[in-house]
Design a protein around this nucleic acid. Structure first.
Lengths: 253, 253
DNA sequence: CTTGCGGTTGACGTAGCGTCAGCTTCTAGC
DNA sequence: GCTAGAAGCTGACGCTACGTCAACCGCAAG
């Protein structure tokens, strides 16, 4: 029976000798025999096994998984099915990521949607905001007036940090959303708790369940708000709305 | 000016203290000051920088790239555009991969397409193959008769290795295709050279340019062949056909 | 004085090899 | 018989972005 050296096998298979040594080291493909000076010699059985390895590797399976399959510990079809699911998840993640990156590019390039700091300006006295009228209609004069007083009483430094605080909360939420957390999960609800406390300071009063849920709904109802949130991450507006509703139901009902 | 400790910053930002230490270690985000026992203290500037970092990180940029951007060495939009291209490429790769995995599952589960070893059986005397008639029509009696003699003269061991040789060539080709190589690239043409030499041994005679190109065309014209190749990797049949045509034009013309 | 909390610095592990560096073994040529 | 070169070998580090110990230190409470 013929045998082949590392270099010969590597050329036949189109891989590097280093790869063959690696597969030996991790026990995935051991040579049929080793001769003088540790020289590796591969036989037919090893070539066939290598072929299986490369076939499965091309499908993106991990080397350890491949080893389990070839050693009979795993069913090929079952392993491939699990792998296909992971691929699908990864593809969806990439899709969302690509969409967010594209949005960010557009936002940086030109017409950027309403920045977060413009909302609270709607509550800032002295500025005529198109959102102030909307706010008075939604939450009433008392709430808006309290908000104006609260923002006026802030130190300039504190006011200056408001945009950053918004950004921080959005980023944390987007990270959770992209990690696959549901809007009702603990980690997400903890962020919403921060968000609620922040709104409480902005409004100068604790939002009622209804007011807070209304604010959440505004994020998906008003295209300007939706654009703002979805520029951070696709679907963030709806995600935040759901999280706010869930939080309000749990803590304000 | 207030400062924050590692734990405080990590809670605010929703990341681990270890991550902050890592960012310090690689020079991406250094604390404003370090006190007793090496305690890290972060100020406003650092918090703002961290926010930028996390924003760009969410978009999938490498930490080194983020550092370059924040230190002014890279244009944000340009970097994002390059990144978007990479994402697109990655997404396409995943799509092809997922399709191939699905095909493989279907193939393993049931109705598998014609296996490579069945072709040469068409040249194997004693077996009546539906492909033999097709072969005689395409290449003539002389070629097919020579092929039958050649295969008969092989040792059983050599015959037994034929399927494996086919598999090997297909895998190498698929790997090149998925690596993005063109069908005329040197690495691909080298594989085709192996393929030609192999066919030469199977046929017992050196295929003419016309015969070899005809064989390549058969791979995309006959659905059974196409299915076989595309089960290895989507688009492999057309890829191999193009590579064979290019090789024949260069070496047999 | 001990315990505990909150911080610190290494150092290893992850996946799949690429890439030296340094040693051995075999063959060809002088 | 000696040597240069080719081809093999065995470590060991590097890459990404941290997670996860282990071991140690300073400070406040009991």
């Amino acid at each position: 029976m013929r045998t082949w050296t590392t270099a010969e096998v590597s050329k036949m298979a189109g891989i590097s000798p280093r790869t063959l040594r690696h597969y030996d080291a991790i026990g995935l493909l051991e040579p049929a025999a080793t001769g003088h000076g540790g020289m590796r010699h591969y036989g037919h059985r090893e070539l066939l096994r290598l072929q299986q390895i490369l076939l499965l590797r091309r499908l993106g399976l991990a080397l350890e998984t491949i080893g389990d399959i070839l050693d009979g510990g795993l069913d090929t079809v079952a392993a491939l099915r699990r792998h296909a699911e992971q691929l699908e998840g990864e593809r969806e993640r990439l899709d969302r990521l690509a969409a967010t990156v594209d949005d960010t590019i557009r936002q940086l390039e030109g017409g950027q949607p309403m920045a977060p700091e413009t909302w609270f300006e709607g509550l800032d006295a002295g500025r005529q905001s198109e959102y102030e009228a909307e706010a008075r209609r939604r939450w009433g004069d008392a709430v808006v007036d309290a908000g104006e007083r609260a923002v006026k009483q802030m130190s300039p430094a504190e006011r200056a940090r408001i945009p950053a605080r918004f950004e921080e909360i959005h980023q944390r939420l987007a990270a959770r959303m992209e990690a696959g957390d549901g809007s009702g999960d603990d980690a997400v609800q903890a962020i919403v708790a921060d968000h609620y406390r922040f709104m409480e300071r902005l409004w100068g009063t604790a939002p009622t369940a209804e007011a807070y849920k209304g604010l959440g709904s505004l994020y998906t109802d008003d295209p300007a708000f939706t654009a703002t949130y979805d520029a951070v991450a696709h679907g963030l507006a709806a995600y935040l709305r759901d999280a706010m509703h869930a939080w309000a139901d749990r803590h304000l009902a």
